[in-house]
Each structure stands twice: as C-alpha cells, then as structure tokens.
Design a binder for these strands. Structure first.
Lengths: 234, 234
DNA sequence: CTTGATCCTCACGCGACGTGAGGCCGCATC
DNA sequence: GATGCGGCCTCACGTCGCGTGAGGATCAAG
C-alpha cells in the first residue's frame, strides 16, 4: 500500500502519515527502490491503532509510549484526570463568559470599562456560588437560568413592587401583598424546583452575602421578613 | 515603572510583556536613553485590560481587535459559541475515556487489542445514548453511575438469577421471583430516579437496540416480559 | 515520449509564550 | 574608580500536530 492509498483508506492526510513517521509512530516497513513508502498489513494495523488512541485525545508521545510499554491503566487514568481538569477550567470559563454575554444584552453600547466591570462581577458571583454549591449544582442552576431567562427577569419588578408596599406601610396580610408573596414563591420555586437542600443553600448564601446581594439589586433582610409574614403560613 | 516591577505587580512574566509588545498589544510609551522600557500609568491600565480579557480565553489577536474596535457583544458571543463547542467535544471525550478506564478495572493485564475493543464499544454505547438522551441527561446518568457504581454492579448477578428461574420454569408469581422483580425495580429506580421520561427513553433504547443490549449481557425481551408478569401489578 | 497524478524531501507557519545565550546598564560596596 | 551582582536588552530556538506550499523525481497510461 502506498501513502496516498492508505491516507484515502483511513481518512488521514499524507502529511499526517509523514509526520507520524518522523515521530517514529508508524514507520513503513519497506520502501521502493525510488524511495516511495510501502505499508504492509502490519503497518496498516498500526495506523489504525494510533488513530484509535489519538481519538482519546492522547498526545503522540504518549501513544508511542503506550504502543511500546502497554501500561494502559495508569496512562489512561492520568489522562482522564487531566481531561477532567481541563473540563473544569473550561466549564468555569464558560460560566463567566455566558454571564458577561448575558449582561451585555442589557447595555446598548458597552464601553471597555463596563465589560471589565462585568467580568469582575460575574467572576465574583460565580466564585461565591462555587462556595455554596457543588459544580454539578452550579451547572444545573446555570442551565435552568438559561432556559427560564424570562422568569428570572421578573425579579426586579417584583422586588420594586414589594418595596413600594413596604414603603407604603401595607399590612403583610393584605391580599395585594399576599399575591406578591405568592409570585415570590413561584419564582423561588422555579429556582430550586422543590429541592429543599438547594433552597437552604441559596438562603444561607443570601444571608452570608447580604451586602453583595443588596448591591446587586437583591432583597434585604427586612424584605425577606416582610414576605415571610405575608405568606399564609407565616 | 520598569518591566520587572510591572511583571511582579501583575503576576505576569517579563517575557510575556515582551511578547505583548511584539504583538502590539501593550507598547510602553517610553524608553530610557539606554533602551529600558518605561511603562506609565496608562500602559499599566492597558496591561490590566489585556489580563482581564485574556482570562476570558480570548486569543491575543481578538483582544487587540477588541481594544481597538470595541465590538464586544459580537466577539464575546462568537467566542462563547466556540467555547461551547470545545466543551461539548471535551465532554464527549471524557465520557469515552471514563468508560474505557472503568472497564480497564475488570481486566487484569489488558492487551492493546482489548483496549481498542473497549474504545470501540464505549464509543458506540455513548453514541447510542446520545441518540436517546439530551447531553444534560447523559451527563446526569454518567454522574449517577459514577456515584452508584456498586449498585450498577448488581445487574449481572440479578440477570443470572432471573435467567435461572426462567430456565427452571418457575411461575413468575412465585415469591422468589417477585423478590427478584422487586430488586430489579429498585435498580431501575436508581437509574431514572422516578423520572418517567428517563425511564421511557431507556426502555425505547433497549427495545430498538435489542441485539446490542443482549450482546452486552443485558436482558432480552423474554426476560423483560417475565419480570413484568412477576410484578404485583402485572 | 508526453502528460497528469502521485510521490519525495525540506522548511516555514501557527499561538503564546518558556528558556537560554550573550551582552549592556545601574546601583552598591570596597 | 574598579568590582560585582542583579536587572535589562535583543535575538532565536522549542513547544504540538500537523497544513501548506516549493521544487523536483517517479509512476501509470495514452
């Protein structure tokens, strides 16, 4: 088999086969008198082996090591750890990036300073979330916020409405306030979906980061208490 | 500010600042008579801007473009899409890799051919799952299997036990078989956790891939029916 | 014998720097 | 003023897995 045929058969390029030969991965076992590469059946098998291992994302050097030594367990486990690390880093990056992109929607013509502030803020928020929730939970919450974006957008209006009733001195038991409290709980529900642990962690986070929550337009403790008194049970 | 001081202050290396200057990203606005770089306050701010944007994973060229043009929305959105693509690819890779590593535990001294077979099989299984479940569901199922590995390991024994009762011609209503069916449902439950959609999709996948399931040591339709008749309701 | 396809061997390019090599500059000490 | 040491300068090569030519030899068919 000549390189072109082998390349066509495997979907690789001729250059790739040349490169693998340079690296000592697949050296054709023969050449014609004029120097053309000739791959025999064993060489072809070897190529498919390299292809398979390369699909696991292994660097060529590791592949040649594996084909020589055969210590798959250790190498693949180490590689898996490394992939996990890259995955975690990329996932965290995606979170920051998505947060920034989302906020950019609200600013018509953002200046550089706005973007830098957003990066800072989103990073801080994500770090804070990471302290209170496991990576899986964070991913879940992000996914939910993405799908229910419109829902989350109701918070500012709702908070403003509650603030207005508080300032007006309305009794928490007033039907209007009870209605607001019901909306409040529906929004909360869309966040933790009935998982009490998620709700508890969220509340702990809110209590321990009161300042940041208020700075971000969130409710203060007085409002939380007011809503609590407005609930039928409270 | 000299380059060493700036490097120390920002946590960058001197080489990095040199490189950024080569790329035109941050060019110190002055030099001493002897050629030493002198960074003024504006240069330092510029460095911090580049640092922030670099943390979003942007290539240097995109950063210099952004600092010049300021079209953040489009660039960051495009970058987010690219990050998502990489994340998806890396996630799928991780699935394959984890599957292979897991199976390697069961083979004492794996040969290359064993590993290649595993790669093939795991890839096929993952592709099949991808047809029936969303990426999020796949991730969830993988996470569950990782935490409940011991639970999943009960399947082979359970299937063998059911097979034995079937071969012995035991009546499905026999208490022993009913007990096996209960174990069966507990294992299934640990898989879909009460989510009926997950259960339905799993069943559809099993039906449409009967051959593969049996080849992988899974139950055949006769066994499913037998278990169904053994349930109190059936 | 010609022609078009295939093959060969260099060798540079990519991205974001790390890592020297070899030499100049600045400040402190003797 | 000489010495020494640390910081600074400018090349320039290496990384990883090839892509992409350049320039020339070879092969199979007409």
């Amino acid at each position: 088999m000549k390189v072109g045929e082998l390349a066509a058969a495997t979907g690789l390029t001729v250059r790739t086969l040349h490169h693998w030969e340079e690296r000592g991965l697949v050296v054709p076992s023969a050449r014609t008198a004029s120097g053309h590469r000739v791959y025999d059946e064993g060489d072809v098998r070897r190529v498919y082996q390299v292809v398979a291992l390369r699909e696991l994302g292994l660097p060529l050097e590791a592949i040649s090591g594996l084909l020589a030594s055969g210590s798959f367990g250790a190498v693949l486990a180490a590689h898996l750890e490394q992939v996990d690390a890259r995955l975690a880093a990329l996932h965290s990056l995606r979170g920051t990036l998505a947060g920034v992109v989302e906020r950019l929607h609200d600013v018509p013509d953002p200046a550089l300073s706005d973007v830098l502030e957003m990066i800072d803020e989103v990073s801080r928020v994500n770090d804070t979330f990471a302290q209170y929730f496991t990576p899986e939970q964070v991913a879940e919450l992000q996914a939910r916020r993405a799908e229910g974006e419109a829902t989350a957008a109701e918070w500012p209006g709702l908070i403003a409405a509650v603030r207005a009733e508080m300032d007006a001195g309305t009794d928490p038991a007033d039907p209007r306030v009870r209605e607001l409290a019901a909306r409040w709980d529906r929004l909360l529900e869309s966040f933790h979906r009935g998982d009490p642990e998620l709700g508890a962690r969220l509340d702990r986070m809110r209590v321990e980061n009161t300042g940041e929550v208020i700075a971000a337009g969130g409710p203060d403790q007085a409002m939380i208490d007011y809503i609590g008194r407005a609930r039928p049970s409270g």
